[in-house]
Design a protein around this nucleic acid. Sequence first.
DNA 1: CAAGCCCTTGAGATCGTTTTCTTGAAGACG
DNA 2: CGTCTTCAAGAAAACGATCTCAAGGGCTTG
Lengths: 348, 348
Amino acid sequence: MHSVPVEPRRTRRPTMREVAAVAGVSLSTVSRVINGGAGVRDDLVERVRDAVELLGYRHNLTASTLRRADRQSASIGLIFEDVSNPFFGAVHRGVEDVARERGILTLVGSSDEEPERERELAAAFSARGVDGLIVASAVRDSSYLLRDRAAGIALVFVDRPPAFIDADAVITDNVGGARAAVAHLIAKGHHRIGFLGDRPDVFTAAERLRGYRETLAQHGLAEDLELIRHPQFRGVDAYQTTCELLHGTNPPTALFAAQNLIAIGAVRAVHALGLQHTVAMVSFDDIPLADALQPGITVIAQDPHALGRTAAEMLFARLDGDHGPTRRVVLPTELIERGSGELAPRAG
Amino acid sequence: MHSVPVEPRRTRRPTMREVAAVAGVSLSTVSRVINGGAGVRDDLVERVRDAVELLGYRHNLTASTLRRADRQSASIGLIFEDVSNPFFGAVHRGVEDVARERGILTLVGSSDEEPERERELAAAFSARGVDGLIVASAVRDSSYLLRDRAAGIALVFVDRPPAFIDADAVITDNVGGARAAVAHLIAKGHHRIGFLGDRPDVFTAAERLRGYRETLAQHGLAEDLELIRHPQFRGVDAYQTTCELLHGTNPPTALFAAQNLIAIGAVRAVHALGLQHTVAMVSFDDIPLADALQPGITVIAQDPHALGRTAAEMLFARLDGDHGPTRRVVLPTELIERGSGELAPRAG
DNA sequence: CAAGCCCTTGAGATCGTTTTCTTGAAGACG
DNA sequence: CGTCTTCAAGAAAACGATCTCAAGGGCTTG
């Protein structure tokens, strides 16, 4: 079994010219049939269709795009931080659901939060003639995309707003969500609340930190820099950082884990230390099995699928000729109480 | 703010012809410089580079691919069941890591396990001239891809092997993993083990069910069809199905949850019923927070990232001219004991 | 019956690039 | 000094499709 060698590209793909020859019509007629067949006599349409079938002709969109007046490639590019983060998986799916209805395909890449990589991806997408770009940007200055937009590429920012370029964006209410999380913990009596989040050069992290700080200030609570931590490699370091934080002198009585992967690490740490009934916790972003834990994890849920859907809808509106002012859509978060956020403070 | 209207495509993209005019050289020379500059005098190279910079020229890969002798588009297509399933997110990332080194981009789509949709995606990718296809196929008969491969598109199956077409494949040892799971439970004394998995028309589900059955038989245990369940919509129904199973007459003392999303549903159900210390459980595929639960979830872990990496490596080997016999790579699973699989049977 | 119109069809230009072919200049060599 | 080789550079064809435009046929209409 499995011993038949794979033949190298034996047959060239048939072209419209060959279809035309077989059908006994001109190249133009074949093109018309392929593009819907309007204005072609029925019997010719049939002959062309038969020839297509016979030869196994497949339309070459590369050549078509090059020549067509509208220049549309029916594909868009998505730049995420990491396609293997379930958050972006859901955003991707939201985009795909909308794109599918229009027969549009998605090119997807991970920037790993590296500006250089993000620009490379944008350039690569652009070189392939994408009609639009949906970007979760990791750069301080997104104006490098101006040239692409000037060349006719539609542009929507998702999860993080654009900087130094006026463009459409769909983001979550990060500050509001963080405020809700921290206010919730304060209402339960907590005064020392740890913050675990990405470094503040990531927009979402900065916003969530802002919400944290503002809410502390609003309630007259002093900010302790010891309690604000930024684990570098989220999965691994969040665990470690949480342990350090909880084993330090004067540890927090509650934690706000401001990102999904960091939250997973923090939850694992709290459970490993046996402190899950002692240290309160709220996470930003819902995580699988959050409700199966004891106690369940109270979360600020965002809707990544809706983020993707909305971004795609805005992108296609632009491609359909919407030249209105740029829009920024902010999607709300939802506080889901499951137990971990409702624990009262206890002396460590 | 945000009130400046977005200008419609104002500038056309500059072409090589325009670059040539500005640099005062011929089109051919510009092409040579863009493609590495071999055989062009240094001063001309510099003049062309300056013109490129000045005009903001961006290479048009669409036109380039059309004309180039090798016809490579430097992009590949990925067909998954669902890009928002973290399992496929990880496979995707594995592919991307390998593709990135070669400057190759990924087009990605979800088939939702619908054969029609899978064929549409393959056709759409093919029309866009992808160099290769990595497919987690949902169809009984994958021979529809023969035509594409004949047209020179490399082909690798991932997660599920090909049917009616001889092609490379990378899959997990589903039968072996399932055997290990069930044997583990039997060794702990369980005789009534529930099976929760996708319908057997999904290859992986059929294989895991086979492993389950064979292991029961091997240990002289009778098979009870009441214990074999196939929740239709995984997230929602797995929860419901698990509840029904555990509340039925003569319920199982252990569960084998044979897919990641089903496992999440089953774990939630077991915990909701308060049976997590009573009913043993092993899941196929590791899931986040499995180790934070009480008891931790014992899993048969597969390595989706390696699945993607390996598939990509095989694909590129073919693109590099490997015409050897087709290969089937089977990646091993790993049993990770965390507690839930080590519970002894108790009368319900 | 001729003029005018609509409708279908095909010829040829064209999209932006690569590739082949040609040209011309410079250098090597007997 | 003439011929042969080598090399850089440009002119033009080609990739596979779409689009413009002109031609031809059939029909209506005066």
